[in-house]
Simulated assay, not measured.
Amino acid sequence: MLKALTIRHADMDDLTACHTIEANCFPPSEAAWASSLRNRIEQYPDGFLVAECEGRVVGQVNSGSTNKDDITDEEFKQLIGHDPEGRNLVIFSLSVHPDFQRRGIAGKLLANFIGHARDLGKAAIKLLCKEPLVPYYARFGFADDGLSSSSHGGAVWHAMTLELED
């Protein structure tokens, strides 16, 4: 049974836990480097949430903000071209430590993130995911925009968008 879960903004004290989660959830060719995660926490804390259970960070969702609709630019993952006032949030990673998966934590993180994006006045949330995750994100209202031109980590990615404006 899952104990009390807190979702909050990440801070620098969360960096090691976030990197550990990232490294456990993605192949090395796809996982964000600690330096990338540090950069995201420092430059855009509004777009970086963690899930904490009994004082332990067990999940994360991190993002950047842009006015662009094409989110395949690899440099953007380093927040090059990031605009805090951009109309779109771009999720780089939604991940939960394997020891805590299948408990609804990712869904709670994503739902909280979507609410936060609305509070920030964003127009849309965009992300890239692999084929098996398309139905997962669709349950939250994301539309499959088709195959992306991104070849990040040598994988095939689907682009997905959740429109937030009425």
Rank of each mutant, 00 (worst) to 15 (best):
R56Q: 14
I125E: 04
S35D: 14
V57C: 06
F26N: 07
V134S: 12
D73K: 10
D83R: 10
D144Y: 09
W33N: 15
F100A: 09
S29P: 02
Q43R: 15
P27S: 10
E74F: 04
E30C: 13
L49F: 05
C129T: 10
V57I: 08
P132T: 01
R103A: 13
P27V: 09
E131P: 09
D83H: 09
H116V: 02
R38H: 13
N62M: 11
N88G: 06
D83A: 11
S150N: 03
N39Y: 09
S151C: 10
W157V: 03
K130R: 15
K68R: 14
R38K: 15
K122E: 00
L147S: 03
R103C: 11
A31G: 10
E131Y: 10
P98R: 06
I41D: 01
E22W: 02
D145N: 14
L49G: 01
A124L: 05
D46E: 14
Q101E: 11
A159F: 08
G115K: 11
S148P: 08
G86E: 01
K108E: 13
V58N: 04
L89P: 06
R87L: 09
H152D: 13
V156T: 15
K122N: 01
A117S: 12
F26E: 04
G55N: 06
A124F: 01
I80N: 14
G64C: 05
N62T: 05
N67F: 11
Q101A: 10
N24W: 07
L120N: 02
K130V: 13
V58P: 04
S29D: 13
I80C: 13
P135F: 01
F140L: 01
G81D: 05
M160G: 03
R118M: 10
S29N: 12
K68M: 12
S150C: 08
E74L: 08
Y137D: 07
A106W: 07
S150M: 05
E22C: 05
P135V: 03
C53A: 12
L120D: 02
V134Y: 11
S149T: 14
D119C: 12
R139C: 13
V90D: 01
R118I: 12
N88L: 05
C53Q: 13
S93W: 01
K126R: 15
F140H: 04
L120R: 08
Q78E: 13
G146P: 03
E74Y: 03
I91W: 07
D83S: 11
P98C: 06
G141A: 02
G64K: 03
H158G: 06
G81K: 07
C53L: 12
L162Y: 00
E42W: 08
R103Q: 14
G153M: 10
F140V: 00
S95Q: 08
T161F: 04
I71P: 00
Q60P: 05
A123R: 14
Y44L: 13
G104Q: 10
D144V: 10
N67Y: 09
H82A: 07
Q101Y: 07
W33A: 15
